[in-house]
Design a protein around this nucleic acid. Structure first.
Lengths: 152, 152
DNA sequence: ATGGACCCTGTACCAACTACAGGCTCAAGG
DNA sequence: CCTTGAGCCTGTAGTTGGTACAGGGTCCAT
């Protein structure tokens, strides 16, 4: 291994550290086809390049934000299929854009309530917790789903 | 049912519709103690009041935003325990505030990338997908966790 | 050449649901 | 009143998305 490193890539342990994804979870994602099989050393160790780092970090972020695996597969498909028809890209991206906007809105409401509680606290008032009220309303997408459900 | 309704409450089916939570999931939440046991009719049907609606909707929103059950239990504790010491409230709320802010930041980046793709699409350009790059960076909390891990 | 850190496959387990099976309740129509 | 069908009950089994070993091989610094 007199190589200048960089080119050879990481084994699974360092990849886990870099991306914040558990080693067992990386192998699990490989099994379900969410990340491509990496190359291997003569002894059978997995060897990952920079592309894997980005992909895994993306998956990790998306999972933490509450997107299910199949949505992530869908979005990764946009990245993989370079010359996919524009209509597809538009449809997939638009669908998920609405989802993302809904999540941002709910998180913002949530954030304001946490801030209110903290600031009242700092003023010595043991304030009533309105955290439930802050997120007690259903989001727009839910109501749309209901409309669909009624139509069936 | 000559009653003016309202006072009697909902059975589990309507509650599910109202909150967007699956019936089986509601019963599951009751089993694990995330929602209190409701009152029952003579025949054993569960009867829910308005408080349950808010609580369940909150849980649903929080779950969709990627918060684990135990975090939700923690936050609901803030709402239940009215005269909890201010320090506790502050600590719990502050911890989760950082989490919420991180999520908002990542979602905003994500949103911008989706918008870019859609707009390029509308101009007829089949643009390269940079969706992975949009979420390819680790968030601040992750790096903090690493620092902790190294300290051990 | 060897010991300890790291990796391999395989399988079992866990959390958080989700989906029946088999049986009871309730209210509206006949 | 009594039936009938939608809705609810408990209990248990299955699914998704991981996590945690066990038992064994690889790598490389000493």
């Amino acid at each position: 291994m007199a190589e200048k490193s960089a080119a050879v890539g990481h084994t699974i342990g360092p990849l886990g550290k870099l991306t914040g994804v558990n080693i067992e979870t990386i192998r699990y994602y490989e099994r379900i086809g969410l990340v491509p099989e990496p190359s291997r050393t003569a002894g059978g160790y997995r060897l990952y390049g920079p592309a894997h780092i980005g992909r895994l970090t993306f998956i990790r972020n998306a999972r933490e934000l509450g997107f299910p695996i199949e949505t992530i597969r869908d979005l990764l498909g946009l990245a993989d299929d370079r010359d996919r028809p524009c209509g597809d890209v538009d449809r997939i991206a638009s669908t998920h854009l609405a989802e993302v906007e809904g999540k941002i809105a709910r998180l913002t409401t949530f954030k304001k309530e946490l801030e209110r509680m903290i600031s009242q606290c700092r003023h010595g008032t043991v304030s009533e917790c309105r955290i439930i009220e802050a997120l007690a309303n259903r989001s727009a997408p839910d109501l749309a789903e209901d409309a669909e459900a009624r139509a069936r």
